[in-house]
Design a protein around this nucleic acid. Structure first.
Length: 432
RNA sequence: UCCCGAGUAGCUCAGCUGGUAGAGCAGCCGGCUGUUAACCGGCGGGUCGCAGGUUCGAGUCCUGCCUCGGGAGCCA
């Protein structure tokens, strides 16, 4: 029997006899000649069977092929312009390895509810395979970016005591004799501690939000990468963000172009994603939005509609900085030039994908931070270790969080964030 | 929590002002030696989300409930 090869290797094996294993996507036949579209995870291959050239058992097996049957095929690799992909396999033999009865996901249309009920099987479809591979590249690019710049990865806890922001939107669980533990909604406070140890750090892991959000931009469990850099101010922070996002997009274009083409993504929109990104202050953004007909008022956070409207004015991600203090988290540093605002910024992706980054320079003054904790009526004791960071050699520092699924959804050009993760967790989806 | 929308065959949907439930795909049988979501002919397939009400008669009208989708709020 010939050697086993993956479909991705076949274009280089023209004229050779090979063994391929995979799953049947579709079959077609015209009486005495038959076609099988096969996938093995590395690619897609058309197999051609001619009744007179294969054993009777193989021809009979073809008749029993159904969608997603796993098979073993031997044959001759041949270039052929009639084959999708340009290469096909002229079968010498075909054996069924695992039958597949009534595969639920047919080549026709399905609704999203049905598809997510069958997410474990939907993952096999061509489109979902392409998205997963772009995600894989995005994550690898994230790690490479920080590795190349000598950031240290620090894994932050998923189980935490009362910390972060208000506890109402956190998942909770009993934790031995210590009372209630919460699932982390950010690793930021911990990376701030680690930044004083290593200078440049990041954490990367799952985050949990118990918000009852039902939108195409929200998940209850999502992946977030959060760099934190000692001695960076808000301007440095924004500079890092635009370099970072440009790097991730460029890597996706460079190494996953075929997948983006599969997804019918307009890659010219991604080619434009290079520094510098436009920057606009919150105050100027409000004026601009008003001129565009929005009913936004200074002091309110930007809603989804306002974000989309603003982002549409630019051909690459836009950074909005210095929001009103009242609508932002306690740990953000007050803007010395305008104490009504803080030194923060959001990055809005183009094409309506919304906020992919939220970041800020952190409050590094002990007394002001304590005042803010008290103003927000947060449990002071729980933040004693966080306050310690300002007590022992306080330092200017800034960081941000990037949502992986939102970024992947934007790069892929898919309408819903749920498709950007293998097994999404949403308000009504805990299975499969 | 609030506001919209949708539940009819395995799937996607149509079903008008109330009058005996339909199509395409999938499945099964047959045909075809180059198909590209192949095509052609045939066959089977239904508690119309649930409960109640109006009516001679309800998939269709009314009330309540359930489930799901989108959006608001919150955020990545």
């Amino acid at each position: 029997m010939p050697d086993l090869h993956r479909i991705e290797a076949l274009p280089r094996l023209g004229g050779r006899s090979v063994l391929v294993r995979g799953w049947v996507m579709t079959t077609r036949s015209s009486g005495k000649i038959a076609f099988v579209m096969l996938r093995d995870g590395t690619g897609y291959l058309q197999v051609v069977l001619s009744k007179k050239d294969v054993p009777d058992a193989a021809w009979e097996a073809f008749g029993r092929l159904t969608q997603e049957t796993s098979v073993e095929v031997t044959g001759l690799v041949r270039a052929d312009t009639r084959a999708p992909g340009g290469v096909e396999l002229t079968a010498a033999d075909l054996t069924i390895l695992g039958p597949s009865e009534d595969f639920p996901i047919t080549p026709k249309e399905h609704g999203t509810a049905f598809l997510f009920e069958h997410r474990h099987l939907w993952l096999r479809s061509r489109r979902q395979v392409a998205i997963a591979r772009v995600r894989h590249e995005v994550i690898q690019a994230i790690r490479d970016f920080f590795y190349e710049r000598n950031f240290v990865l620090v894994d932050t806890p998923i189980l935490t005591g009362a910390i972060g922001e208000a506890a109402g939107n956190l998942f909770s669980t009993e934790y031995f004799d210590l009372g209630t533990a919460y699932l982390a909604q950010t690793g930021q406070l911990y990376v701030e501690a680690a930044a004083a140890a290593h200078g440049k750090v990041y954490c990367f892991g799952p985050t949990f939000r118990a918000e009852k959000s039902k939108t195409r931009r929200h998940l209850t469990e999502f992946w977030m990468v959060e760099p934190e850099v000692a001695w960076n101010d808000s301007d440095d922070n924004m500079k890092l963000q635009e370099e970072f996002v440009s790097y991730v997009v460029a890597r996706s274009l460079e190494r996953k172009r075929a997948e983006l083409v599969d997804l019918e993504r307009d890659t010219t929109a991604l080619e434009r994603v290079r520094p510098p990104f436009p920057r606009i202050s919150y105050t100027d953004a409000v004026e601009k939005l008003k001129a565009l007909g929005s009913d936004i008022e200074w002091g309110r956070d930007l809603g989804g509609d306002a974000e989309t409207l603003l982002a549409k004015q630019y051909d690459r991600p836009v950074m909005v900085y210095n929001y009103p203090k009242a609508v932002k988290a306690f740990y953000m540093k007050e803007n010395p030039a305008d104490p009504r605002t803080v030194l923060n910024n959001d990055m809005l992706a183009p094409e309506g994908y919304g906020e992919i980054i939220g970041g800020s320079q952190r409050e590094d003054d002990y007394d002001r931070l304590l005042t803010r904790i008290r103003e927000e009526k947060l449990p002071e004791e729980a933040y004693s270790w966080y306050l310690d960071l300002r007590k022992y050699g306080t330092f200017v520092h800034a960081g941000f969080g990037l949502g992986v699924e939102r970024t992947v959804a934007w790069i892929c050009g898919i309408p819903h964030i749920r498709e950007a993760i293998a097994f999404p967790r949403t308000l009504y989806k805990l299975w499969p």
